[in-house]
Design a binder for these strands. Structure first.
Lengths: 153, 153
DNA sequence: AGTGAAATGAATCTGTA
DNA sequence: TACAGATTCATTTCACT
């Protein structure tokens, strides 16, 4: 990954629907060059996931929450397929600390969230934080800040 | 928002680089119709954020963490501009509970993460969870599961 | 590996019903 | 309002640097 690759990834992190022409303009490369680099980055598995982040509130999902779950080790087998199928789960991470799973979910109301948490409790103890506001919504890392460090191969 | 709008949002949540033609194929609408709907959804503020989620590990960001910060109320003024400029912060939420801020960040090594946390402590007490694995990476909600509920206007 | 021109294919615009 | 054809624009391929 050179500086150009980083620039391209950075642009796509900000707007994944950017056209080749737009990216070409910002990088001072030609469209075919940008296209080739994006394909290479996709083959290397660096790029590939492009997601729209719609306004959940405007779609009726008024409640977002982080749920910490102290998953019992012997329930892991059952938990992963279960959580995968919970269509309101936005993200699930396995983390250090007392609560091993950190789950982000969105629901229309607190009632549905409560139902979900009650269901989750078959897998272990939970602790929930409701989201008041999101000062920084999901965004990418800045890759081309300083030119001193050589990141990755 | 009708069923078609939901379908379009759902497709873009899964792949925000999907072309109008692809979306048209999946929705049995014409490309111009899809285009018009996307523009309308963008004007309504429902759509607009399209982000690439690159493989952070492959780019050298090996450590991801959730940092809980018990932000002192009188430091809020200083905190928001500060956190906005932290280019390694992937997301920041204001949540209920003892720790008012929940920050997700990515760093090349634990050393840089530690530096960040030390810096954060000027704003309040912190508690950190390192991410081991991410069974479910950031994804959208399922909008067209059941046809019984009418979501949003 | 990058460019520029040509060909393909997609997106937008205009007409018509 | 939706569709079909025409124009414009983006993307890919290819010959060459």
């Amino acid at each position: 990954m050179d500086q150009m690759d980083k620039k391209i990834v950075e642009i796509l992190q900000k707007n994944s629907r950017a056209s080749l022409k737009e990216i070409a303009g910002e990088t001072y490369l030609s469209s075919p060059a940008v296209s080739a680099r994006i394909h290479r980055l996709e083959n290397e598995g660096i790029l590939g996931r492009y997601i729209a982040a719609p306004d959940l509130k405007k779609m009726g999902y008024h409640i977002q929450a982080f749920i910490h779950l102290d998953l019992s080790p012997n329930q892991k087998e059952d938990f992963y397929p279960y959580i995968e199928n919970c269509t309101n789960v936005l993200e699930c991470n396995c983390v250090t600390g007392e609560f091993s799973m950190l789950i982000k979910a969105a629901y229309p109301t607190t009632t549905e969230l409560d139902d979900f948490i009650n269901n989750l409790q078959q897998f272990g103890k939970t602790s929930t934080q409701i989201v008041f506001s999101t000062p920084i919504p999901a965004r990418g890392v800045q890759l081309i800040a300083s030119e001193d460090e050589e990141i990755a191969k």
